[in-house]
């Protein structure tokens, strides 16, 4: 459908010559088949939830370690353990494991393994709490991110995270990942 609009627009542009009507639309190259419809800015904004390693995509809002601690106790510790200790079977450990990656029993956690703090925000927002994904506000996700980082000693007690500060958090294993050359 969008290509038909483009086509009409370009016909208009030709017909009207230098008057300039439809020039912007005509400048857009036509799609080969014209299937699908243009995505509206609103529907893109609603679906565009990913957060990149450099923080691109982080929403407005903020959250503190203190708020995160309370939320974690009510929404997360049933599976991940109180203060992230002793999770139930099948639920990953969220803290500890520093210095174990080159040993026969590596403990891969947010603290010991994850290269980017932004990934924590992205994952909690898209997938946690396990039984009710998508139920947290952005402020709550910032707070929980801050708390899980605090559990791992990566940010101080007083930390408040937002779109500006979270990407600056440097993870202990930041340089531990190498792209497989034969991938």
């Amino acid at each position: 459908m969008h290509s038909r609009i483009a086509l009409l627009a370009s016909i208009g542009a030709i017909a009207l010559g230098s008057i300039g009507f439809g020039l912007a639309a005509a400048a857009e190259p036509p799609s080969p088949l014209g299937f699908g419809r243009p995505a509206t800015p609103a529907e893109i904004a609603a679906a565009d939830i990913d957060v990149r390693a450099d923080g691109a995509g982080l929403p407005p809002g903020r959250g503190s370690v203190t708020d995160g601690a309370a939320l974690f106790a009510s929404s997360c510790s049933a599976c991940h353990g109180e203060q992230g200790q002793k999770p139930v079977a099948g639920s990953p450990r969220l803290m500890g494991g520093l210095g174990t990656l080159a040993t026969p029993k590596p403990v891969k956690t947010v603290g010991s393994y994850w290269p980017y703090a932004t990934t924590l925000f992205d994952y909690i927002r898209r997938a946690m709490p396990f039984q009710a994904p998508g139920s947290l506000s952005d402020d709550q996700v910032y707070a929980l991110t801050a708390y899980v980082l605090r559990l791992n000693g990566i940010v101080p007690d007083a930390a408040v995270l937002d779109a500006a500060t979270l990407p600056k958090v440097r993870m202990p294993n930041r340089d531990g990942f190498v792209r497989n050359p034969n991938g």
Binding site: D50, R52, A53, L101, A102, P106, K108, V110, Y113, W114, P115, Y116, T118, T119, D122, Y123, A127, N173, G176, F177, V178, R179, N180
Partner: peptide
Amino acid sequence: FQTREETSKYSSLMPDGTARQ
């Protein structure tokens, strides 16, 4: 995009402790 499924999971530890992604 460095999602959880290409960092925390589906990445592989080498003997020296570095991860292949």
